[in-house]
Amino acid sequence: MIRVLLADDEAMIRAGIRSILATDPDIEVVAEATDGREAVELVRAHRPDVALLDIRMPRLDGLSAAAELRRATPDVSVVMLTTFDEDEYVSRALAEGAAGFLLKAADPRELIIGVRAVADGAAYLSPRIAQKVIAQLGAGQLSKADAARRRVEQLTPREREVLALVGRGKSNQEIGGELFLAEGTVKSHVSAILLRLSLNNRVQAAILAYEAGLVRADG
């Protein structure tokens, strides 16, 4: 069972998201918050697998809440959920360690896919968000590529293989299947990669894999 905390200050939005999530028998909403401060408190109390946070909330906005959760409960995956897809929000969300970014206007099935992907240890960005990230990476690509390749050289050959598959959006289970590794071994490799390269999460690892040329934008 995937345990989810839902945080949004609009009751109708919460009800709609809860109804969508309820269509998947493997997902359970264990708590709801109406502001960012309450979301942080409830995550600490319930320790869900995934925290769905609206970006614009009273008392503490979603991005600030995500930063607090990264420090206090790094085992909880944070997904930003918003009506907006401005570049500043995307950049801040990734910098604050969000594992996913979903738009409220997206297909409801995308919400289920995103929650499942993040709970399984993968990263997930709405296609519109992914396009923005790729476009941003295109600017100054050569200098970024050189720096990224130097960073990746610190890794072992096996770690580079794992990083490339993380860059393709694969979950730990899928990576294990491709490389014939136990899921726990893959998890250890991912943790070592994040630590050695000073990355906050799989989204940042995927971006680095792209910049280093380990994965192409077209997959």
Rank of each mutant, 00 (worst) to 15 (best):
E86H: 14
D24L: 07
K170E: 13
K104F: 07
V40R: 09
S191V: 08
D8I: 04
A67R: 12
S191M: 11
L142C: 03
V118T: 12
G140P: 11
A33K: 01
L137Q: 15
G121D: 08
G97I: 06
R92D: 15
E174C: 00
L6V: 08
T23P: 00
A11D: 11
L60P: 07
H46D: 08
R47W: 00
R44D: 15
R149L: 01
L81K: 00
G114E: 02
F101A: 03
A31T: 01
E32T: 06
A135F: 09
I55S: 01
H189T: 11
L5S: 00
R168P: 00
L125Q: 00
A33G: 07
L69G: 03
F180I: 02
I20H: 04
S198R: 15
I129L: 06
V115H: 04
V79M: 10
I175D: 01
A67L: 08
A147T: 10
L81E: 01
L142K: 13
G100Q: 04
R71S: 13
M80D: 00
Q141C: 02
R158N: 07
Q136Y: 10
H46R: 14
V90F: 07
V190R: 10
L103Y: 03
E38C: 10
A39T: 09
D218S: 15
A130R: 13
L165Y: 10
I13A: 06
V29L: 02
L195M: 12
V78S: 01
A205Y: 08
A106K: 01
S19M: 12
L21E: 08
Q131P: 00
G62H: 05
A117K: 14
A145N: 11
R202I: 07
V30I: 15
V162G: 10
I175G: 01
V190F: 04
L197A: 12
L165T: 03
T23N: 13
L197Y: 11
R116D: 08
E38L: 12
K132E: 12
A99F: 06
A123D: 05
P157C: 05
N200R: 15
T185Q: 08
E159C: 07
A139W: 10
P157T: 07
L69W: 03
S91H: 14
K187R: 15
Q141S: 14
A206W: 04
G167E: 11
S126A: 15
A22L: 05
P157Q: 05
R92W: 09
A22H: 12
G176S: 02
P108V: 07
V50F: 01
E10D: 10
A148W: 02
R158K: 11
